[in-house]
Design a protein around this nucleic acid. Structure first.
Lengths: 340, 340
DNA sequence: GTTAGCACTCGACGGTCGAGAGTGCTAACA
DNA sequence: TGTTAGCACTCTCGACCGTCGAGTGCTAAC
């Protein structure tokens, strides 16, 4: 324990917190005396607990119940943990074995991995990327007068869509068009492309469809990249914990997850390397019994994304930090490989 | 009501079912007398209800509670509905406005639409496609020595992945390779491609990476298409209904949704145009208080997929059928356009 | 065939009571 | 001065009980 509390008191507080994390039940003096501080009697523990309560670290649901750690106690406990080092969860990488297509897939994969490792709700945020520039543009022939329009940006982001083209165009013709388009559009930002093509396609003509398709795809791509993307995994893991055995509370919690704004806000407050928000610190009423543990990860040059775990305040922070650390590193690695 | 029950009894039973659907509370004789059959006294209704109970259409939770429809009653009610015509939900199309990339996106979109319209859990199944043949194969240049490998099949399915290539290869070179590969591989099944390339890539050499990439992508594509794909939307809508106000039940329900096998089974029993499985008919214990309403939709030539809604037995079947009908048709249309 | 009336049943609700858990306080002890 | 045993006290929880009200089934009259 960092400060404010010395040796024995600190040990007792820690024991109470850890027992409460395991059992979710108010911890009595006798439990501590038997399981943790076997050389002290329950009466002694009681005196210490009484002190700790006065200091604001413990609370009693009612007079004849045991003690429950306060948010202040968790704060102390977590700050202590964050100062120490913790092992990286070795099993994390296994969860990434599935097919990974591009950024979005990696993100989704990470969210699932994190929620499966921790058994809590996981959130992964991908930072927005502004002013993407087109690096390449290609039409791939498809059956029956369709073509797949693929746009690749300088950052390696990919977006594609199926458009209709004249049936007369074969692969070579489509490639010729692709080449010409790439020549004219490479290096332009998505916004510029939209403006340029807006003018063209209003003229109508044979290949207006292609140009319209490009403009639409560019617009969509920009829209998608201008906002931070957020993925949630294991949303209903929360039902596994007695804190949310009340359906109303669980529903409220899940609603917050659905309306992404508040989550965004939480993750954007993530600082490097780890941030822990406990209960009321989240600023979200439906999460007053939750903690949010976040870590940031590196995406290419300078961009930072964030990953986080949301669970009851009474969560095994050590394990969660290990998992976050592992998933965050894996993420940085994978995104470095495929994208940067 | 189709058979077994004549005029007034049928009307009363219908009234009971519809009231129960609205309120989720046992329906008393007085309620029916006042709200539905105002020209009959509650005593008369009581007599009829007593008959209906003897016939197995109603049940009493306890002697002084009202009556609750049995599964047999729902069966009758639903069979009656299925015989009639119902309006198509006009608002369905609005939900499809988002970006739609290819089959998977359409499926996801449909699941969300369906769950938002009905406020229940929606499932959408895409049928497996065996023996896909390659129609085109193309490498799109990406920054920093990467390329996007795109495979298009004759059915219009698309799969892509990022692979590393020699930095010396520019767009034209990649197109030349693409052309050659397409020439050699077009018309082959994914399995054949894997076999052919397995041999090549073992030889090593400069472009072994490309061939390996193709083989891997083909393998993945086949894996993905060989199994039916399933998407679930609005899973936790179930929490909105008093039938699942017990967290344990809700959890069990959500677990069934996660382990997809049982869902697959349910959807594969879907017959054209609509199928309704009531409570125990689902064969899933965790869903004994649920009904599953499914519809099938057309995917291209001959293939049929299925969409479904899962909610409490006491659901407004009429509305659900309307929604299914609308989403199913939209789906057929969209897949017809872009894929077929 | 329908209805009013009435006795009856059963769950929901609120109150009471005893058991058990855990506390705080006090006094004795090292 | 710190630790501990002992004890009275408080509070929750489950069991039990009586009341209330909803809804039924039955009977007799229309």
């Amino acid at each position: 324990m960092v400060r404010g509390i010395e040796g024995r008191k600190a040990r007792i507080l820690k024991a109470i917190i850890e027992d409460y994390i395991l059992t979710a039940m108010p911890v009595g003096s006798r439990t501590i005396s038997r399981k943790y501080e076997t050389n002290l009697s329950s009466a002694t523990i009681r005196n210490e607990m009484s002190d700790l309560e006065e200091l604001g670290y413990l609370a009693q649901p009612h007079v004849s119940a045991g003690r429950v750690p306060s948010h202040k106690a968790y704060r102390l406990y977590v700050d202590d943990l964050l100062g120490a080092s913790f092992p990286e969860d070795g099993s994390a990488r296994e969860y990434f074995s599935r097919q990974v297509r591009q950024m979005e897939d990696v993100i989704t994969c990470a969210a699932h991995a994190l929620s499966e490792i921790t058994r809590y709700t996981a959130v992964v945020m991908m930072p927005k990327q502004l002013d993407l520039r087109i690096s390449c543009l290609q039409l791939v022939p498809m059956p029956r007068g369709n073509a797949l329009l693929v746009i690749v940006t300088d950052t390696g982001a990919i977006q594609d869509t199926v458009i209709r083209v004249s049936e007369a165009l074969d692969g070579d013709a489509l490639y010729a068009i692709s080449r010409m388009l790439t020549e004219r559009l490479a290096g332009r930002t998505l916004k510029e492309v939209q403006q340029m093509l807006g003018a063209y396609s209003r003229q109508g003509g044979a290949d207006a469809r292609v140009l319209q398709g490009i403009a639409a795809l560019a617009a969509q791509m920009e829209r998608q990249n201008a906002t931070d993307t957020l993925t949630v995994g294991g949303a209903h893991n929360i039902l596994n914990y007695p804190e949310y055995s009340d359906v109303e509370k669980a529903r409220a919690f899940l609603s917050v997850l659905e309306g992404r704004e508040k989550l965004m806000d939480l993750l954007s407050r993530s600082q490097s390397p780890f941030t822990v928000l406990i209960g009321p610190e989240t600023g979200i009423d439906e999460m007053r019994d939750c903690s949010v543990v976040t870590a940031s990860y590196q995406v290419g040059a300078g961009h930072r994304g964030a990953i986080g775990v949301i669970g009851p305040t009474r969560m095994p922070y050590m394990k969660v930090l290990s998992a976050l650390s592992a998933v965050g590193n894996t993420l940085t690695e994978m995104l470095g490989e495929t994208i940067l």
